[in-house]
Design a protein around this nucleic acid. Structure first.
Lengths: 337, 337
DNA sequence: TTGTACGCGTTATCAA
DNA sequence: TTGATAACGCGTACAA
């Protein structure tokens, strides 16, 4: 591996290690000429200050960790890309972890990260249903954490979310205005705060427009692709909804597949709208109406917030909550007639 | 941050640091009871061996770096997800970097990584057009690298790729068999080896079926979304192709948008097939025929290869090349009539 | 401006 | 089985 260290470099230049070290730090006193000499030789020998030694000394890793439920996901990819950009610009590196919605993995990642490997964490949580007090148990030693999108409401740490309640209300209202009377809500996990908030917007919109709420129209889906499609086909046949509001992107896809299978025509027989950041929503058959979340901006904002915490801890109170707005985009899947 | 270290833990237990250290290593001699005592206390105090200190000692980071052209990309997301899975199972962490197709960034990332931060690198390259000899200059000190998908042909290091030539040939043949006579090839960068290979399959298929090759039907696209659509609209109007083969996924999307704009009907006026790993290709309007690359498997294979190199360097020769097969999936966008 | 010496937290070697 | 000690590579007081 890296066999040229500061000692060898110093020896090659007939200098002390401290002088060499100074050449790489901006603030230290060092003559311009020796600095130049050192940097030149460093380049020639391909010297790079050892990251672990530096960070052991400085107790800083210049690394942030990003934990998300899944990586192969349009929404989280966009967010991670923005986070990487912000981090990269600051000279930081990002460690990426996927929990695959397993709470134990989240706990394990987080605990492990408290060994100095990262300076801060940006996370979209996985285990709302569980006891996440483990975060509080780390108490004073807890790394700075920023939640984004999926959050724990009972943990006090800054967060960046979207206006899910309003968006859900607007999406449901949109379906009603397009003539829907029986609107199904496709939930992925009712107990997640994000699921609850989104569902409440749906429920309140129904009430506002005097449409009776029917519990059976709340269809709880799983993480299994095929199973969801089967479940939806059955539900569409049994319950005969005329509108569908999906709380996450992939359930909109599942709805399309289900409709294809049982010959329901969107939007004639069933109007569909869903949360989604998919850029090619206009290319779907039919073009999908969406509640488009600003995924990139969410990532960017979360990263900037974390850096603010790292640079100026007192400037960010633990109750900080930034809310970004999603956008309702009406397309063919909810058009009248 | 982490304020409980091995010394404090040792003091709390009236033991030496070496004994405590031993409790965390599996091979060392230590009595079962003291080990249990230590681990119990460690849990209570939330002690985690400092990662930087350990790795400074051991000269191992248990971390691999993944460098890709872009993160917000269906294909690379799938690959990264698989890599993360393999790494996670081995107790490794992954650092993720996006070059955004800037060669200088790639060079900078790679050089930086040679400071001990990572034990190995998995990369899909960005700078085929440039001089990538920088990799050779690192010579003996170079970290183990596995290329995947996009590779440098002149750098000797193991790689995992797909059978692009065959796939391109098959896709072009498919268009011909569906009746196309003027097939445009949408290139993204002719100089990339991946571009060259894919284009050669197209060219050879034309020749095989005695269709004259026309240089103007090779349409060179950019990384700019809007610009591509404009360029395609013009090309479709001017050149009147009856088939399009796109060398990357996003050009298939651009083709759809362009066709919508100028009222070309796919597949009647223009048949379209493209490289793509998009799961919802069947949901597009019309359903997109694809050359589907095994993105997840590619990532998994690359990761496994890298770990093999780390664990048993002599078992993997630098010329190792694994080829995975893509699959041609025929859908509506290339159907006859 | 440069050099000496210590310590960051850990683990391996050696001795007890 | 346990403890003392040196070393990993670097950065910073402090001294020169």
């Amino acid at each position: 591996m890296d066999n040229v260290n500061i000692k060898k470099l110093a020896k090659a230049l007939h200098l002390s290690t401290s002088t060499v070290s100074r050449a790489f730090r901006d603030n230290s006193d060092i003559s311009a000429t020796t600095k130049a000499r050192i940097l030149a030789m460093a380049k020639e020998l391909n010297y790079q200050p050892n990251h672990y030694a530096s960070n052991l000394r400085e107790q800083k890793s210049k690394t942030i960790a990003v934990i998300v439920p899944e990586l192969a996901n349009n929404y989280f990819s966009l967010a991670i890309q923005s986070i990487e950009r912000v981090a990269s610009a600051k000279g930081y590196h990002i460690l990426v972890y996927a929990t695959n919605d397993q709470f134990e993995k989240e706990v394990s990642f987080i605990k492990h990260l408290h060994n100095g490997r990262a300076d801060g964490i940006i996370m979209s949580v996985s285990g709302e249903a569980n006891n996440h007090n483990y975060l509080n148990e780390l108490s004073k030693k807890r790394l700075p954490i920023v939640f984004f999108d999926r959050v724990y409401e009972d943990i006090e740490t800054p967060r960046v979310i979207t206006n899910d309640y309003d968006s859900s209300f607007a999406a449901t209202k949109h379906l009603i205005q397009q003539g829907c009377k029986r609107i199904a809500y496709l939930a992925v996990n009712k107990t997640l705060s994000i699921g609850k908030t989104r569902m409440q917007g749906y429920i309140d919109a129904l009430k506002k427009f005097k449409i009776p709420f029917e519990d059976e129209l709340i269809i709880d889906c799983t993480n299994n692709y095929k199973e969801n499609i089967d479940r939806l086909k059955k539900a569409f046949i049994d319950l005969k909804p005329d509108g569908v509001f999906t709380s996450v992107e992939r359930l909109a896809f599942a709805t399309y597949y289900a409709c294809y299978d049982i010959n329901l025509v969107i939007p004639k027989d069933l109007k569909v709208i869903g949360f989604s950041s998919l850029e090619i929503a206009p290319l779907l058959n039919p073009a999908l109406s969406t509640v488009t979340q600003p995924a990139s901006e969410l990532g960017k904002t979360a990263a900037e917030l974390l850096f603010k915490m790292l640079e100026n801890p007192d400037d960010v109170t633990p109750t900080t909550q930034l809310v970004l707005n999603s956008k309702l985009v009406q397309r063919e899947s909810t058009s009248k007639a």
